[in-house]
Design a protein around this nucleic acid. Sequence first.
DNA 1: ATACATCTACCTACTACTAGATAGATACAT
DNA 2: ATGTATCTATCTAGTAGTAGGTAGATGTAT
Lengths: 200, 200
Amino acid sequence: MYALALAPGQAYLLIDRKNVRLMPDTRTQILDLAENAIRLRGYHAVSFRDLADEMGIKSASIHYHFRHKEDLGLAVVDRYADRIATQVGAPDAQDWPRSLALFCQVYRDALRKNQLQCLCGMLAAESAGLPDKVATRVSEFFRGNIAWLTAAMPPDMPDKPGLALRIQCQLQGAMTVAVSLKDLSVMDRAAQQICASAAD
Amino acid sequence: MYALALAPGQAYLLIDRKNVRLMPDTRTQILDLAENAIRLRGYHAVSFRDLADEMGIKSASIHYHFRHKEDLGLAVVDRYADRIATQVGAPDAQDWPRSLALFCQVYRDALRKNQLQCLCGMLAAESAGLPDKVATRVSEFFRGNIAWLTAAMPPDMPDKPGLALRIQCQLQGAMTVAVSLKDLSVMDRAAQQICASAAD
DNA sequence: ATACATCTACCTACTACTAGATAGATACAT
DNA sequence: ATGTATCTATCTAGTAGTAGGTAGATGTAT
């Protein structure tokens, strides 16, 4: 079996007689599992041991990649924020309805993809009990979203920051309620209503 | 020192030579502390030991009142739901704007009173990692709120359940974002906007 | 005498985290 | 080409501390 690094921190191309498979490297695998676990159960309910067991390695090996739990938490949040930023791209003030629809879509996908709420929704709820740095990154994520929405609005719009904040809150709340009620359509309906009310 | 039970599960009248004080009984004290701790840090970050230390008793004594952590969680949620139900009273379909304002006010007070988010907001976020019964009560709380709002709307209103759900989500999201941004005015602005948009 | 509430003292399982070792790959100077 | 040193990723085996939970004794009020 041969393993070939494609890009640092990304993946190995694993080659054996039967398969040619793209396998995430260990660090990426840890981040993936940690993100899922946090989004499902919350920061405090995630343990190095559980993650390690799921991967078939020892918890000490996770500490090799992320010295402290806080480091893992920060890495998960940063990667998540980057991913969302990539997905929404640069705000386009030329076409506000389209930008808004895209924003809502990204939020909906986050929930729909694996029935898990947005990472920062979970961490925001927990924020008073998180390590300071992690809580700060989470609030920066929200501030970034609000700034993006504001920048995507046409110049003549009144009370842009107020509307941006409202949209952020609505999507966030819909996600939380959808998860609790186990009814993901709550999220879809919220997104639809937000887009519709922005069209006038 | 004399202690006189005023009402079961409520309080003792503590009398010593210096003071006549109303002291919550142990069970109530545990519920108070647990509720605060859960609203601040989340279910999993609350421990019997911490609660006991804060009260100056032993954790075994908390187990006497609440055999399992799940029992404590259920009691906290039930008491919270009852309290909110008492605060909002019966829905009054004669005066929808007033009912809505009252509902929003109760939500705002929950946040404002001790800078802590709504219990069920926190637990809803964590719901996938909670004991089933606790998660169920939380979702019942939301369903109850939505039913209350629906019942308080005038009979001729279109899409009552949709609007009720939206209001619930907006308040919930505003609370989460307010806590993360450490800016409680987010909540006030959301409440104001909801009431304003219902006035037309 | 009984019921209640609390205590002491413990258990098992799990937490984050660490020290020290090792096998295998990589880099580089001779 | 070979030997030396370094790096990477993992392991075993542990630390101290905390989790929820329990059995049984002790005090106290009626």
